[in-house]
Amino acid sequence: MELIPPHILLGAYTEGVFPMADDGELIWFSPLMRGVIPLDERFHIPKGLRRALRKAPFELRMDTAFLEVMKGCAERDKTWIDDVIIESYSELFNLGYAHSVECWDEDGLQGGLYGVRIGRAFFGESMFSRKTDASKIALVHLVNWLREEEAELLDTQWMTEHLKQFGGYEVSRDEYLRLLRHALRNEDKSKIV
């Protein structure tokens, strides 16, 4: 498979579609129900995580190890992140559309997440942890950054029990597309790459 051209990848996101790799084949998804994490007061930090945040076990960084984060997310028995996905999103990172949040300690990179930002929407792709709470702490940092940036939509693609603890919920495809259009209302799609 060849690299996914940036304009195709970004154009897909603006239409509510995203890719995943499966045994060398690229599959495009637009789920009937879409996971969303609220960026307002409904965002919830579980009590145990609040304690961990107070201890500040990690140094938080953004965009200093994008490729390492992607490879960390791919370190699992079954993954949809293959070389084509890694190279395609690395190109989006080079263009300023993809971002990583990283948790570091004296032993190195311990967790993080990555995703794509277009306008006031952030499309979360994947997260990983090598040490307790690293991906959760990265998510809290992402939400704080998105609030500072006045983002309106944090898309998680699908909803999981892990994400529900943060106030994550599902919306229908129609509702998701409405939220997406609103978050992209000031974006000129013809100027995206």
Rank of each mutant, 00 (worst) to 15 (best):
S126C: 09
D133T: 14
A138K: 10
R147G: 15
S129M: 05
E150Y: 05
E106K: 03
K131C: 01
V101M: 09
D107Y: 01
Y114C: 08
E125L: 07
S135G: 06
I118V: 15
V116T: 14
G112W: 08
S126V: 05
E106V: 01
K136N: 06
H141R: 14
E102R: 00
V101Q: 01
W145I: 12
C103R: 00
L146G: 11
D105T: 02
F123I: 09
L109W: 00
K136W: 07
I137C: 09
M127Q: 05
D107W: 00
R130M: 01
L113V: 07
A121Q: 12
L139R: 13
N144Q: 12
E106A: 10
D133N: 11
A138Q: 11
W145T: 14
V116M: 10
H141L: 11
R130L: 04
A134D: 07
K136E: 13
E106S: 06
V140S: 14
K136C: 11
V101K: 00
G119K: 09
S100T: 03
D107V: 00
I137Y: 07
I118W: 06
S135C: 07
S126H: 06
F122S: 11
S129D: 14
M127C: 04
V140R: 13
D133L: 05
A138V: 12
V140H: 12
A138L: 07
V143F: 14
S135W: 05
G115P: 14
Q110T: 02
W104T: 00
M127R: 05
E150L: 06
A134P: 04
I118N: 06
F128G: 03
G124A: 11
L109Y: 02
E149S: 13
E148T: 13
S100Y: 00
A151F: 12
D105H: 01
E148Q: 13
F123D: 06
